[in-house]
Design a protein around this nucleic acid. Structure first.
Length: 271
DNA sequence: AGGCCCTCCTGTAAGC
DNA sequence: TGCTTACAGGAGGGCC
C-alpha cells in the first residue's frame, strides 16, 4: 500500500483543491471494501464544506463541521481529483462530488481500502485511538523506541510495522530504513541498543522525507492526486532487490519471508 | 499481553 | 501457448 509517504503525497495534492469547497453529493459504486461504506454518508455530507484535509498514520481525514470522513487506501488505493464528467474507471468505488463540478474518486482494485465516518471526535475513533507517534514528529525518538522495545522478542521489521508502536511505516520503508541503519530486519526488537535505535530513527525520518519529496513510491497501483506516479521507486536501495548487489558492499542482497512478508537485507552490512 | 496467522480482493508474473 | 500458483505497498481480529 500506500504507506505514509504515499498518503502524505496524496494529501498534499488534494488539500489545496478541496479545502473550503462544498460537497454536492456522494456516489457509492461499490460499498464492499474492507468494511462497508456507510450509506448514511449520502445524507450527512452534501452541503458540508471541507475545512481541512489532514493525515494520521495512513488515514486521510476530511474534516467538515458535521464531522470527519476517514479514507484509507489499503494496498492498492489511490485518490484523484478529476472533472465530474471524466469517465469512471472499473475500480473507482467511491466518489465525492464538489459543487465546483470536480470529483474526488477512490480507485482501489484490491478493495482493501476503507471509507468511514468518524464523527466529531475522530481521534477517538476505534481505528485512530491507540496509534503510536507520527514518525516525523519530535516525540518520536530513539529513546522512545528503545524504551518500548525492551523485552520484546519480535523482529524489528515487525515492530516497525506495528501502528501502535509508530504510525504509518509499511514494509517498503521499514526495509529501506533498516538497511540505512545497518540493522538486520530479523533482529529481535529487544536486542537493539539505544545508540542503534537513535540511528534507526534518523534513517526512518530521512527515508520518509525523501520519499515524500519524490511523490511516493509507485510499484504498481499508486498514483498521486493528479494521476502521475511517484518516483521514489528509483531511489530504493534494498526493497525488491533480491539477488542484486548491495549498494554499500556489492554482496548479493538476500530475501526471506518473515511473518508472511518478504524482508530484503545484506548479510554483510546489516547485523 | 505479546506474537503469529489468516483473511479480505484483483492483477501480474513466474513456473511448469 | 495456456493453465496454475505465488505474491503484492495493510492491518484488524482471532487464536494460542
Amino acid at each position: 500500500m500506500p504507506e505514509l509517504p504515499e498518503v502524505e503525497t496524496t494529501r498534499q495534492g488534494i488539500a489545496p483543491l478541496v479545502e473550503n469547497q462544498t460537497i454536492a453529493k456522494i456516489v457509492i459504486h461499490q460499498a464492499k471494501l474492507r468494511w462497508p461504506i456507510p450509506g448514511s454518508l449520502r445524507q450527512k455530507l452534501p452541503g458540508q464544506s471541507i475545512r481541512s484535509v489532514t493525515r494520521r498514520a495512513k488515514y486521510l481525514l476530511f474534516n467538515t463541521s458535521a464531522g470527519t470522513l476517514l479514507i484509507h487506501l489499503g494496498m492498492s488505493g489511490s485518490l484523484r481529483l478529476v472533472p465530474q464528467t471524466t469517465p469512471r474507471d472499473t475500480h473507482d468505488h467511491f466518489e465525492l462530488v464538489l459543487t465546483n463540478r470536480n470529483s474526488l474518486r477512490l480507485r482501489d482494485p484490491r478493495r482493501f481500502g476503507a471509507v468511514l465516518w468518524a464523527g466529531e471526535q475522530p481521534e477517538q475513533h476505534k481505528l485512530l485511538a491507540g496509534l503510536g507517534p507520527e514518525p516525523l514528529e519530535h516525540h518520536f525518538t530513539g529513546d522512545y523506541l528503545y524504551r518500548c522495545s525492551r523485552r520484546r522478542t519480535r523482529a524489528i521489521r515487525d515492530f516497525l510495522l506495528d501502528g501502535h508502536v509508530v504510525a504509518g511505516i509499511g514494509n517498503i520503508y521499514a526495509n529501506e530504513a533498516l538497511f540505512t541503519a545497518g540493522i538486520r530486519p530479523t533482529r529481535p526488537a529487544g536486542r537493539i541498543s539505544r545508540d542503534r535505535y537513535q540511528k534507526l530513527v534518523r534513517a526512518i525520518r530521512s527515508t520518509l522525507r525523501r520519499a515524500i519529496k519524490a511523490g511516493g513510491t509507485s510499484i504498481r497501483d499508486f498514483r498521486q492526486a493528479d494521476g502521475r506516479p511517484g518516483y521514489f521507486q528509483h531511489s530504493l536501495k534494498i526493497y525488491g532487490k533480491k539477488g542484486e548487489p548491495c549498494p554499500k558492499c556489492g554482496q548479493k542482497i538476500r530475501a526471506v519471508k518473515l511473518t508472511n512478508r518478504t524482508v530484503f537485507f545484506c548479510t554483510h552490512c546489516q547485523l
